[in-house]
Design a protein around this nucleic acid. Sequence first.
RNA 1: GCCCACGUAGCUCAGUAGGUAGAGCACAUCCUUGGUAAGGAUGAGGUCAUCGGUUCAAAUCCGAUCGUGGGCUCCA
Length: 646
Amino acid sequence: MDVSIEGQQMAVQPGASCADALGLALSKKKAKQVLACRCGEALLDLTTTVPEGCAELVPVYEDSDEGVHLLRHSAAHIMATAVKRLYPDAKVTIGPAIDSGFYYDFDYVRPFTPEDLQAIEAEMAKVVAEDAPFERSVMSAAEATKFFADQGETYKAEIIADLGAETVSIYKNGSFTDLCRGPHIPSTGRLKAFKLTSVAGAYWRGDEKNRMLQRIYGTAFADEKALKKHLQRIEEAKKRDHRKLGTQLDLFSISEEAGPGMIIWHPKGALVRTILEDFERKEHLKRGYEIVQGPQILRQDLWERSGHYENYRENMYFTQIDDQAYGVKPMNCLSHMLIYKSRVRSYRDLPQRYFELGVVHRHEKSGVLHGLLRVRQFTQDDAHILCRPDQLQEEIIGIIQFVGDVMGLFGFEFELELSTRPEKSIGSDEDWERATAALEHALKTVGLPYDINEGDGAFYGPKIDIKLRDALERSWQCATIQCDFTLPERFDLVYIGDDGERHRPVMLHRVILGSVERFIGALIEHFAGAFPTWLAPVQARLLTVTDAQNEFAAKALAALKARGIRAEADVRNEKLGYKVREAQMDKIPYILVIGDKEVEAQGLNVRLRTGENLGLKPVEEVAGLIVADCQEPFKRGGMSYSFAAS
RNA sequence: GCCCACGUAGCUCAGUAGGUAGAGCACAUCCUUGGUAAGGAUGAGGUCAUCGGUUCAAAUCCGAUCGUGGGCUCCA
């Protein structure tokens, strides 16, 4: 039969293996770099017979994304091989390749220590040196169950039972045999560069009711160079960590004395927040929202009525005032409901868009707290939109555009997810379908790509989530848009329609930044601490060469401040190089040097934090430069904004 | 909440056989007035997270608690 391989038509003998077939077309050198191959969607081992009717065989090279993925999957097997040799009583469970490497979960009587990891890594090197082939075979489910059960591998037996398939494939490399769909690299010797990175606990099947297993993480690459590069990249990313930069730039702190998950904003960080919030308030007003504000604690009865007491109690804080039970708000919706209810609403009044920078408290489990990204008290840029069903579509589109404009302002790339009805949910099928269709249609209208997260919606309605990634590629939810039928029902919200009858409005919960804390954390990492000029707590610092320029420095400083620029002067008795270094490390956008030449010319010597030097310019010109720089990012979204502290 | 690791000066970290603590930066004082990433000298600063135990003696060994980090579960 004729098979196309990298553009060449090859006559392949029936029954030939993929390796044989590829060998016809590829040079020896290239063939050596092939780990597996693909026929259509199917990934195949090189030992597999070329499937009948296969028109094209695509080699999977070790340095391709697919190849590295394969390498990592096989590395997981090799790790399990080593673990079983060193700790025969350990039971194997699952071990997939993941974005950054691979892991394997084991059930063992004691936790693995860092020393164990070293030993396992050394044993893996031996397994690799043995260069044993990965051999695939197929067994009936019953046979396989017995095979694994006989070895005490109860988890594998459980997995086979759950698969419900008649036959399963297994892979053997040397002494170790594992249940696996495959494919795998030809032999263990093909694993050239790997490293075990950490041990962690992980629940069997990700359920906290199950036994906790020992998960060993590792990573693998096509060669040592790529591995080294990866490890270096992680080191670099750690320098962008917002927790580190938060301390270095004196933005915020978290004090053990004050309590975990509570952010203490220092002057510079609080200023960044203030500017961001000021921008948001103005932008919301422009987009037809009204600013509202509710109390921090509300009576418990109200939380019972909303369903929060029943569904969200473990995350809430409660208190008692004059024998009355109160709940500290974990969400802002309740007072917004009450505002709507405070008078009769006409269909002409809708949509009502209530915006609140609301401070919420949530009792998060201690193990999940993470710098600014996961805290117990945070501020949401929250809004609730109450509208007629026929307005739903347009409102959702407006929100998605809002999110797009704001993310574009910061140059954030984000991922969109549409989450549909979960198993445990309330409301009619009709409502769910309509709301999901509205969300999906809106996504299509704005033309942004999105993933569907089947069954991951809130219990009261479907939602769109917007996720950003941190320096270490972990993804964090920021913006979210949620449809809700329950609250309008529970609070009996109505409007009078043009027919004079009472109708139920539809409600949207939405945040744009999500949490101000989390968003600033993401911003710090995104910009590596170098905030865009409009957000930078200090926009310009004047550096004098000697104290002979102090007088002019004061004059120039006043001139910049008069233009609303956040500037300060460094007139300390230090060398210029020292002051430049410090300003540079403080990531100040404009470093303005004043020596005798500048005094004489009544100008400033402009150095950017990139190291670029713009030379000597009149003070007014520099001010104009900085002011224009602040405007720049807003042009993209057709927005405008200015924050002037003075 | 669960698993593992960690907690020494404001920050970054030494402290390797248990014998009452060190460096660099930052800070203070003095000298130095020096053009684009660190000038010099001197000084101050720590109940070694907290509590308890073992020991003649604990930063060091053991336990508990609190906190942090990496994961799991959960979520803005």
